[in-house]
């Protein structure tokens, strides 16, 4: 059985088929990229996995468990974290507290304990903080710890979002266009981090991306989508040469 599997996943808005009977599987420890022109349904697939949308039909499995009907907040508890295309950070909070929210799925303290800030809460806070510091070190975010998000440049925010997802110690991470809005140098950093995530942290990566150079550098396999359907699946080189994919991109 595959690590993560989508079976016949569909999402229809009235007559529009944003995602149309898409099936794919992700193996443990691989980096799988989803490519496709604008409006191909890439982000919709992510939103289906993180249960922002309810699929019209089809099922999603993670570690052999059917997660199609799980409430959205449970998806994170199962170990699936994500980033967003247009950055969804907690604007009026510090970088540190943003990252600590990433630890939310590991918090075990109860409300009354927190009101009194019992030693157990304090101990837990330190554990969370230590984990967060590891991620900060991994992504070189040291200078920004106490800064408010609303004052930070776009490139940094993008990294912070990645950091927040990593803080939850995910097994599977969904990256929605990790390089959009980044310059060449930042994209280069991003590609190293994505590979390190896989090699050092053992995270499985599913990503949506437009930048083909990034896709080629990091992906083990690629899926090409258009009009909500799978056009091709395989190694980056195979998919790029696939006639349907070429046609979709060149508009032929």
């Amino acid at each position: 059985m595959s690590y993560f599997r989508a079976e016949n996943l569909s999402l229809h808005f009235g007559g529009l088929k944003a995602v149309d009977a898409v099936s794919f599987a992700v193996e443990k420890g691989e980096i799988l990229s989803i490519i496709g022109p604008n409006g191909a349904g890439k982000s919709s697939i992510f939103n289906l996995i993180s249960r922002i949308y309810r699929p019209t039909s089809g099922r999603i499995f993670f570690e052999d468990q059917d997660i199609t009907e799980q409430p959205p907040y449970d998806i994170a508890k199962l170990g699936i974290a994500r980033t967003f295309q247009n950055i969804e950070l907690f604007e009026n909070a510090t970088v540190l507290s943003n990252l600590l929210v990433g630890r939310h799925r590991h918090s075990t303290t109860r409300l009354w304990q927190e009101l009194l800030f019992l030693p157990s809460v304090r101990a837990n806070e330190k554990v969370h903080r230590r984990r967060v510091e590891q991620v900060i070190e991994f992504l070189d975010l040291e200078p920004y710890r106490d800064k408010l998000i609303s004052g930070l440049p776009y490139g940094v925010r993008k990294v912070i979002e990645l950091a927040r997802a990593l803080c939850s110690e995910p097994k599977l991470i969904l990256l929605d266009e990790p390089s959009s809005g980044l310059n060449v140098e930042e994209t280069g950093d991003m590609s190293f981090w994505i590979r390190d995530m896989k090699n050092e942290l053992g995270v499985t990566v599913l990503m949506v991306e437009h930048d083909m150079s990034l896709v080629n550098r990091v992906s083990d396999r690629v899926i090409a989508l258009n009009y909500g359907r799978v056009l091709a699946m395989g190694s980056p080189a195979e998919v790029q040469q696939h006639p349907d994919v070429v046609a979709a991109y060149l508009g032929a």
Binding site: S50, I52, F84, F90, E91, A93, V101
Partner: peptide, 21 residues
Amino acid sequence: SPTGRAFVAIRDSETAARSMG
């Protein structure tokens, strides 16, 4: 504590809060 941070998270982005569990 985690609860207070969850409150702030909800204030700033419900979607992101949800996706963080």
